[in-house]
Simulated scan of single mutants.
Amino acid sequence: MDHSNHVRLTASELSPAILEGATVYGADDDKIGTVDHIDGASGRVVIDVGGFLGIGSKPVAVPMTELDFMRDDDGDVHAVTTWTKDQLKELPEHLD
């Protein structure tokens, strides 16, 4: 997917209501996870990684600055990061 024409979200759009459920694409433009929620206490984004249809996925937390949130041509919100799925799987599980 070519993200160069996608519109970056503004700071005011970086809210849980907009970001939760967004697909996260990794370094090779592979789908690597989905935004589960924003951890308000730490300001980190919790991403569900791995699993199948939400079963067996592992929640991991990364700094919001590690993700570039944008809207595609259809208006769908997604994020791009330099992380790979394997790198995220190696992170400790995020526990609320």
Rank of each mutant, 00 (worst) to 15 (best):
T82E: 11
I55W: 11
S15H: 07
D68V: 06
A17T: 06
T10I: 02
L53E: 14
D28G: 01
S42F: 06
D73S: 12
D73A: 13
F69H: 07
G43R: 07
R8V: 01
A41R: 11
L19T: 02
V7E: 15
E93M: 10
T84V: 05
D36R: 13
I47D: 00
L9W: 14
L19W: 06
I32M: 08
L53C: 04
P16K: 03
V62P: 02
F52N: 06
E13V: 02
F52E: 10
R44C: 03
D2F: 07
P63R: 13
V77L: 08
D96S: 11
E90F: 00
M70C: 09
I47V: 13
V35F: 03
S42I: 03
F69K: 07
L9V: 09
K89W: 03
G75R: 11
R44V: 00
T82H: 10
D96Q: 09
H6G: 00
H3W: 11
P63L: 04
P63Q: 09
P16T: 03
V35L: 02
R44M: 04
V7L: 13
T23D: 15
V77W: 09
V35D: 01
T10N: 08
D68W: 14
G54E: 05
G56D: 07
D86S: 15
F52I: 08
D76Q: 14
L91R: 13
G56N: 09
D74T: 09
H78N: 07
D30F: 07
A22G: 05
E13W: 10
T81P: 03
D2S: 10
L14S: 01
P63S: 08
S12M: 06
M1Y: 12
A79C: 04
L19K: 06
A79H: 09
R8I: 01
D30S: 12
G51P: 04
D48L: 12
K31A: 15
D30R: 12
L19G: 02
H37K: 13
A11D: 15
G51M: 08
D86A: 15
L95M: 06
M70I: 00
D96K: 08
S15R: 15
V80K: 14
Y25D: 02
E66F: 05
L53Q: 14
